[in-house]
Amino acid sequence: KSSIVLVLNEFMEKERDEYLHASAYERSSERRDYRNGYYERELLIGVGKIKLRVPRTREGDFSPSIFEKFSRVDQALTLSMLEMVVNGVSTRKVTNIVEQLCGEGVSKSFVSSLTEKLDPIVNKWATRPLNVQYFPYLYADAMYIKVREHSKVVSKAVYIMTAMNEKKKREVIGLKIDHVESFDAWQGFFQELKSRGLQSPKLVISDAHAGLKKAIEREFIGTSWQRCTVHFKRNIIKKLPKKGMKQVICDLRKIYQSASCEEARASKVEFISKYRVNQRIENALDLLEEGFEDTIQYLNEKHKYQLYISSTNSLERLNQEIRRRERVIRIFPNTQSAFRLIGALLMENENLQLNKRKS
C-alpha cells in the first residue's frame, strides 16, 4: 500500500506540472496557473484504503486523472503496481505498466523516478532492528546474478539470511549484494546483522562453503553449524555409479530419518559396514564419513524444530522465486536496482506468508 501511495502521489505531481506548463519555482511565459498546496483524499482499492496527497491550483481547474480512471482500472492498477515493485529495474516493462495506469506514454526518466521512490521503503526494511526477538535458527545462502558495471557485465553475489524464532515463524533478516562469495564478505554481512541487534543463534544452517563456515565460527561464538542434509545427500549420490544404486540411496536416506544423534550414528555405521565391500562406492562412503557429524547437529535440538532445521530448503525455495523473476531481467542495470528488486520481492513474499498465517 505504501508503494502505491508513493507512486500515485508522484504521478499526480507530474500531472500538475504538465497542466501548469511549469515546474516548481520555474519562471515560464506559458504558465497557466499557480500551485496552491495539497489536500488529502482517501481512496478504497483492492488492497485496502489509502490516503493520497492531492495537488491543487489557485483557480481550482486542475483535477488529477487518477480518480476518474481508477474505477476502470482498479484491479489492473493493483496488479500492475505489484509487478512494478518486482520488475522495477526494467524501464521498458515498467513503462508498459504505467501506461496502463495513466492512459498515455511516459518517459524512461519518469519511470526511473517512480521506481527510485521505493528505495527508502526497501532500505528501511533491510536495516530494521533485530533485537526485538531472539532467533535461535539462521539459514544462510548466496546466489549469483549479472549486473552491468562500468559498461561491463559482471557477476555479483546476493547474500540472503533468513531466521526462525521459537514459535517457528520465519522471516528474512538480511540482504546484501557483494562482488564474490568469500570469508570477508560473509563476515562483513554477519557483522552488519549483529550491529542491528542480532544475537548469536543456537544453529546456523547452510551449505559447506569454506568462507561461510569460517565466518560463522568467527562471528557467532558458541553457535553450532548444521550442514544442509539435502545438499550433503545430493553430493554423496553424485559420487555413486549411475546404475544399480536404488537400494543404496534408499538406505542412505534412512540414516536421516533417525530420531537422535545416537540412532543416526548407529545407522551410519550399519550403512558403511553393509556397503564397504563395494569398491564402486568407496568415494561416496568417504564423503559420508568426512561430513556426517556436521549434518546431524539438528538432532540435538527439540523434536518440534528438527523438521525445519535440517536443511536450507525454505531458503532454496525463496532463491528459486528470485531466480524466476531475475531470468526475465537477465542483466540488472546497476547494483542498486538489483537490491531494490530483490528487496521488494522478499518484502512481498513475507507479506504473502503473513496473510496466509492470518487466514
Rank of each mutant, 00 (worst) to 15 (best):
K169T: 04
C228M: 06
L101T: 05
H150M: 11
V54N: 06
Q191E: 14
C228I: 07
R276L: 13
E83W: 04
R35Q: 05
I173P: 02
G343V: 03
V73M: 13
T162C: 05
G103V: 03
K14L: 08
K176I: 04
F110Y: 06
I342A: 05
K117Y: 01
E18I: 11
Q247W: 02
L285C: 06
M81S: 06
K243S: 12
V204P: 02
M143K: 13
L240W: 05
M12L: 10
K302L: 11
N235K: 12
R32N: 11
K51W: 01
I205K: 01
A157P: 04
L175G: 06
D33T: 08
C250I: 07
F232P: 03
F232L: 13
S63V: 14
G291K: 12
I322W: 04
A157K: 03
E68A: 12
P120C: 05
L175E: 04
G105A: 12
S267K: 15
L285T: 00
I236Y: 06
Q247I: 09
L315D: 04
E59P: 00
S80C: 09
I281H: 02
D74Y: 04
E104V: 10
M161L: 13
F339Y: 09
R324M: 08
H21F: 14
K358E: 10
A338P: 07
T223S: 10
L285H: 01
G174Q: 03
S260M: 08
N87K: 12
A344I: 00
I342N: 00
M245S: 07
S23F: 11
I160N: 01
K176V: 09
K243V: 10
Q75T: 13
N300Q: 00
D178N: 10
S71H: 09
E192K: 11
M245W: 08
F189S: 08
Y275L: 07
K238H: 12
N36R: 03
S337P: 00
K168L: 13
D294V: 01
E348A: 04
Q187P: 00
Y25V: 10
K238Y: 10
M347S: 02
R227C: 09
S71V: 12
R72V: 07
S200R: 05
A22G: 09
K108P: 01
F67T: 02
K268H: 03
R340F: 05
S273D: 15
E282D: 04
A208G: 14
E15R: 09
F11A: 15
V158C: 07
R357F: 06
W125M: 05
V180L: 13
S109I: 02
L212T: 08
R330P: 00
T95G: 15
L8E: 08
S107T: 08
I221D: 10
N283I: 00
C261M: 14
E59G: 13
L79K: 13
I236K: 07
L252P: 03
K51M: 08
K213V: 13
